[in-house]
């Protein structure tokens, strides 16, 4: 082996190892390695070194809890993100929550609609301002609902009486055959509507 050939051949070896040696030179390299023991050994040692290093790859793994440790180093994340992720992880509960919000919304709308004075139209009723009167000696047949107003019962009601957001005055002669209900709070009102909904 002379110094000149070695320089060129060594370059060939490395280009070969990089997979970039043109075919003609590969033949040349091979021919030379067959003749030259020193270069042959040099080439074998290079290939072996690569094999040794490759043999080490993937033999170490990140320590346990590595990811948790990294995450604990990060600055605190915003709360909105946590909420969004919670929604992602709990689609059913999210659906329930959304449903509940819409239900509440419709009830509130209904509530606001219901802020006006109204009552079940029945014969024999007398209305004075916001007060519905069942006159003395008269009988109302059927249920009676009064919203946002009072009721004064001097006669007889043959059914249930419900007063929402109002007062009920019962004269001594007054008589109700069914249930009497007074609803003041929004929640009671809500409950009443839900029951009605179910009853329907």
């Amino acid at each position: 082996m002379n110094a000149d050939c070695q320089k060129e051949i060594t370059r060939y070896m490395h280009e070969y190892l990089d997979g970039e040696l043109p075919k003609e030179q590969v033949v040349k390299l091979r021919e030379h390695l067959e003749q030259c023991q020193d270069c042959h050994q040099h080439f074998q040692e290079l290939k072996q070194s690569i094999m040794f290093v490759r043999g080490l790859s993937n033999s170490v793994k990140a320590p346990e809890h590595f990811t948790e440790n990294v995450l604990s180093l990060l600055p605190k994340e915003k709360r909105t993100i946590k909420l969004q992720r919670w929604f992602h992880l709990h689609p059913f509960l999210t659906a329930c929550a959304i449903f509940f919000v819409f239900m509440m919304g419709s009830f509130v709308a209904l509530w606001e609609q219901d802020q006006q004075f109204s009552f079940t139209k029945q014969p024999n009723l007398v209305v004075k301002g916001n007060t519905v009167i069942v006159p003395k000696g008269k009988t109302v047949k059927g249920d009676l609902v009064v919203r946002n107003g009072d009721i004064r019962i001097e006669g007889e009601v043959d059914g249930d009486v419900t007063v929402i957001n109002g007062e009920k005055y019962m004269a001594s002669a007054g008589k109700v055959t069914g249930n009497i209900q007074e609803i003041h709070q929004m929640f009671e009102w809500l409950w009443f509507h839900m029951k009605e909904l179910v009853a329907q």
């Binding site: 993937n58 170490v60 990140a62 590595f66 990811t67 990294v70 995450l71 990060l74 994340e77 969004q84």
Partner: peptide, 17 residues
Amino acid sequence: DQNAFGEIVEIYKDKVY
């Protein structure tokens, strides 16, 4: 979203380590 970053760490931790 830091959990998403955690998933990235999981993928590359062995290579980086």
